[in-house]
Every structure is written in structure tokens, then in C-alpha cells.
Design a protein around this nucleic acid. Structure first.
Lengths: 341, 341
DNA sequence: AATTTTACTTAAAACGTTTTAGATTACTTT
DNA sequence: AAAGTAATCTAAAACGTTTTAAGTAAAATT
């Protein structure tokens, strides 16, 4: 109803200059030496007329939007949506809002989103990068755009980043499986060269190797874009044609869900006939019968680090700032999808 | 690296006016009668120098940001995150971006978010409103801010809204339970007067009444803010102190998860000793053993309607436009958490 | 030859801020 | 009395657009 009041209106109403009003509203009264009485008068008046600064104008002038862009695979994925929730909380606490985009893990889509949000002058990016995005990330860095990668990163680029210890976690999972007397462990993962998947695979292979089970390795790779469509069938095929398998280690939680469907359908008993471990925990894994053993990412902690790193960059735009690589340890939740020792 | 080029730069480089450049870049060349040759020249030059309009300036001038604000309970909740994913997709398709906020279902937080995003000049709101937000919604409406409610609404306010048929769906669930020979059906729900919960409760009570089971009704209400903390214990208490209960109907999926934990812990067999139905489906319900019967909201369809309604409003800001109330039918997925007929 | 029309083009205001570089007045100090 | 110094305040530019209301020159009409 009532039209918005601007600084100009206030200045006119109080018969003072726009500059004075702006200075006072920005708390610079003391600093530049304006009378306390005047400052109070302006503040009071602004309050009364319900002054709300036009943030677009402010942003245009200052170049800051107080908006952070979060680029993730898919907001409907439980891992990413919980990252989003924590990042939102941390950002809000520090005066920032979140705008997000789902990349579907496609370089083209991601690139497009980056450009769109750059055009919108977001103050910084938190990105779970897809493959083949090196050039784009480099270009952002060269433009000094604040930026933190998470979940995966690029060996060839020095960025601020927050990831978990994928290699070690996968290694430990395999050790655990071996300890529980599983010998033929398959690894079902994404067909992806992204660091997080590569490291999980390496951890799996190294452990098998170290324990003399190299010959029994079995790796099934599924394209991210084909998971919904093909994963069920591919896992079915894997299990059927390799009756010697006694454990399945899944590279992501959505693959685990597909795998559980398969085992269900085949009537294969967990943990007797097949041990199951999931990389990435899921709210319901502890509710399954049997409950599912999983590697959990400490999402709250990661999110806090992400926002910290990004705001550090935003506050210190000098290119001399040293990039930080943070590795947080994942947590292995041992549940009933494994035989007892 | 290279600084951004503006319309002003292009005008200077080509020795023409800013107006001309702007007109051409906005495709109004024909309309105002600029020479084709000139238009082409400008377009070509803009392309070459990599001109990107400053969207902040554009928004300041036009008052449009092409950003939609999505206010939901919690982005980490599977129902809301999947709405977010679909809304994002639909919005993107039509040139809009999404900025979101988690209300935690708290009026204070919601109010704050609305104001913050209004200050940011979002073009419209899609809101799952908390209780006690009538005044705020009314105030938005009176300011002619484009707005669609979903999941719940206010009886006392005429808004555009998209909801499911909560009453009918709940009624049908109870009918189904009765048909499967359950007689002592408890309804575990939120302690909330929001329409979606009120309607589910009414459906439950009406069905019991219609089938002569009024005396056996059992309603347990849990505060939204206390779900994480208390739900498990409260449900445990309910089940323990009412041994006659033979079915549990949960008002939301997160309550169902808590309930399943309880039944698990107590070793109560589903569906023999206890039938279970969930309002709101969950990606994993079909994977549980037994799989869980649930009322699924057609999220894709709802999201599309939401974006449609909002853009209709944005494109037709006349206050004469008639508000639309859309009710989409929910889908009952009957699974193994119920005895056979 | 004067007037009107047509075909193009643009100056300048406006959106609402922040900030630089003074301006003004009054009070001290020499 | 002149000069310096505080103490307050502000004019105007700038951020990068869009859009209103004209302006200009050439061609067409009288």
C-alpha cells in the first residue's frame, strides 16, 4: 500500500542532506563527526516511517549482495539437502542468504549456473564440482571470485576445499569386511573420475591388495546419469553372475538403496549371505532390518568449515591469501548388515 | 581479470548513444525503428566484447529480479527438498532462479525471512506457511506481492494455493485399515492447527465415526519443535500403555520413522501385531521389510502448479485476478505393512 | 518554398544507494 | 586582526541500467 520511503525522502522531511542520512543510517555518524542529537533524530525518524534500504541499490553501489551461491548435484539428494540446511544456517547467522542450483553433475549445466549467478553478483560460491570443470574454476579463481569446493576437488588446481578422507574410509570399510570374514567383496560405484569416487575406489583396491585379496576384486561402475534407469539391473546382473560374492560395498547411498532392492528381490539374506556397507549414511539406514553399516560424512562440521572458508575469502580478497584444504574424518557406523566377528 | 564492459562502453566504442545500445540489446530495435544494419553491428560488437548486463542495475531500474523465494519448513526434509528440486526445475525453465529459506515452522523465523526477501525484491513467494502467519500473509497480499501457499493455507484468507486432499486421503487410509481387520487405530500427528494436519485428523475421526469405531479413537499429538527430542518416547509410551492398539497411522513421514524405531525396539511385528500407514511417502518406504504403506503427494505435479500460479500472478499484477485454489489428489501406495484382506 | 511526414537517433531523468572531496561556520591561537 | 583548526554538514559523482520525450535530417507533400 504505502510506497517505500527512501533516503531521499528522509533527507527532505528532515531538511538535511542525503549524505548525512546515509552516513547516520550506516552507523558512521561518530566516525565522521555528526552531532549525536542529529543522529538520534534521523534514526528515530527512519524507524517511524519504516525505512527499509533498497538492497538492490545498495548492492549496485557497493558490489556486494550478501548472497552465497550453493551449487550441488541435486537438492533432493539427502546428503546435499542436509549440507544445504547446515550451510543455510551458518550463512544466515553471518548475514548471508543462500541461492542454490542443482547441477545434475553435468558440466554444461554447472557452467551455465556459475555464469548465471556470477551475473547476479553473488558474493561467493560453494560448489560440489562436476567433472571437466577445471577451466571454469580456474577462470573464477583468476577473477578472484571467492570460492570453496566440497565433496570433490581438482588435483591440478589449488582451491579452498572441504572434503572427507575418502581413501582411508574406504580402506577401513574393506578391513572391517575382511575382519568379519567376507572374502569376495564387490565395489559398486559411479563411473566417474571425480576425486571422491576415485579415492574410494583406490582405498578399496589398496585394502584388497594389502590383504592378499587382489584377485577377488570386483568393481561395477554406473554412470551418474543412468543410476535411476540402470542401476537396479546392473547390480542384479552383477550379483547373479557372480555367485561367489559375499559382500557389497556401495560407493554412494543411492546406489546402496538400489542394491538393497536387488537383494530384496533375490531373497538374499543380509548379513548371512551378503554383507552390505554403504558409503554415505542415510537417515533410514539404522531403521532397516537389518540396519545398514555406513560411512557417515560429518555434514554439520563440513558445512561450518565451508562457510568459514568462504567468508574468510570474502573478507580478505587479497590474492596473497593462502588456500586451505580441509579434510574432515568420516565416521564409520557399524550396524547389523555385517556378520559378527 | 578484464573489467566488465557496460552499455556505456559499447556506446562510446561505437560512437552512438546509450539509449540506442540499450534498445537494440533488448530487442526493441525493430519496434522503435532503428536500422537493421546498426542493430546487427551493435549485437555483433556486444558479443565480441563479451557484454553481460549488470542484473543488479537492471533490477534496480525495472523492479524485477527474476528471483522466486521458496519458504519451506526445512530443506533437509525429503518432502520439502523434493518440492524444492521440482520448483527449481520449473522456475529455471521459465527464466527464474530460486532463493530459499527454512522456516523451521516458526512464525517468527518465517516473518523474518519474508521481510528479508521482500527487501531483496524477490518477484514472488512460494510459502508453506507456519501457524499464526495470517497477518503477514494478508499484508503481503495487500501490497500485491505475488504469492502462492502450499501444503497448508488459511481458511480465513483467499490466496492462490496448492494442496492435496488431506481429509479424503486420511479417510481412505482408515477405511483401508478397517478393511484389513484393524480395529484399534491410533493417529500420531503434529500438535498443530495447520490445515493439512487438521484435515488429516478430521478424516481419521470421521472415518472411525462412520464405521462405528468412534470409541476406539486414539490421537497422539507431538509438537513439531519437539519431534527429534520427544517423538520416540511419546510413541513408545502410547504403544506400551495401549496394548489393545493394532494399527498406527502417522500424520507425517518423519513421525513414521520414529514410530518404526519404536516398533523395532519393542519387537512388535508388522503387519501381524501392528498395521502401519504413513502420511507422506518416503523414498525408502518401499525398501523396508515389510514395505510401508503410505499416502504419497504428487510432488512434481504440485510443483508445476505452484510455479504456474506464481508466474500467472507475476505476469498479471491486476488485483482483479481471481485466486485459484488447487487440490491435487494424493496417491495411496498400499504395501506390506498391512495384513492381507 | 514552406510544410508535413518519415525514418532514425538520443539527452537526460530515474531507480536508491555510497562515498569523495569539499564547504561552511565558529572557535582558537598567534 | 589574521590565520589556523575544529566541528559539522553536504554537493555531486558514481554504480549500470531503462525509458520518456524529443531532436534531427531527409524525403514527401502541398
Amino acid at each position: 500500500m504505502k510506497k517505500k520511503v527512501s533516503i531521499k525522502d528522509i533527507a527532505a522531511q528532515l531538511n538535511i542532506s542525503i549524505t548525512t542520512v546515509s552516513l547516520i543510517l550506516n552507523g558512521k555518524a561518530k566516525e565522521v563527526g555528526l552531532r549525536d542529537a542529529l543522529a538520534e533524530k534521523v534514526l528515530k525518524h527512519a524507524e517511524e516511517v519504516g525505512y527499509k534500504p533498497n538492497l538492490l541499490a545498495k548492492s549496485l553501489r557497493t558490489g556486494k549482495t550478501k548472497i552465497i551461491c550453493l551449487l550441488i548435484e541435486n537438492i533432493a539428494d539427502p546428503f546435499f539437502s542436509s549440507v544445504a540446511a547446515f550451510v543455510e544456517e551458518q550463512a544466515n547467522l553471518r548475514g548471508y542468504k543462500i541461492i542454490y542450483g542443482s547441477t545434475k553433475n553435468e558440466p554444461g549445466k554447472t557452467r551455465e549456473l556459475i555464469n548465471l549467478f556470477k551475473d547476479r553478483h553473488v558474493d561467493g560460491f560453494i560448489i560440489a564440482p562436476s567433472e571437466n570443470l577445471e577451466k571454469d574454476i580456474k577462470s573464477l579463481l583468476s577473477e578472484n571470485v571467492p570460492l570453496v569446493l566440497f565433496d570433490r576437488f581438482y588435483e591440478t588446481i589449488s582451491t579452498d576445499q572441504v572434503v572427507i578422507d575418502n581413501f582411508e574410509s574406504a580402506y577401513k570399510v574393506v578391513e572391517l569386511l575382511i575382519d568379519r570374514h567376507y572374502k569376495n567383496i564387490a565395489f559398486i560405484t559411479l563411473d566417474s573420475s571425480q576425486t571422491q569416487m576415485a579415492d574410494r575406489l583406490s582405498g578399496y583396491l589398496k585394502a584388497l591388495n594389502d590383504y592378499g585379496l587382489k584377485a577377488q576384486s570386483h568393481v561395477k561402475k554406473i554412470l551418474y546419469s543412468k543410476v535411476e534407469q540402470d542401476a537396479f539391473n546392473e547390480i542384479m546382473e552383477l550379483v547373479k553372475s557372480n555367485p561367489q560374492l559375499d559382500a557389497l560395498f556401495f560407493g554412494t547411498s543411492y546406489l546402496t538403496l538400489k542394491g538393497l532392492e536387488v537383494l530384496n528381490e533375490l531373497g538374499i539374506a543380509i548379513p548371512q549371505d551378503m554383507g552390505v556397507v554403504s558409503f554415505d549414511d542415510h537417515a533410514v539406514f539404522k531403521l532397516f532390518t537389518p540396519s545398514i553399516t555406513a560411512v557417515a560424512q560429518p555434514v554439520a562440521q563440513m558445512s561450518e568449515q565451508l562457510v568459514n572458508l568462504l567468508l574468510e575469502q570474502i573478507d580478505d580478497q587479497t590474492s596473497s591469501r593462502i588456500k586451505k584444504q580441509i579434510v574432515v574424518p568420516a565416521i564409520l557406523h557399524v550396524r547389523n548388515s555385517l556378520k559378527a566377528k
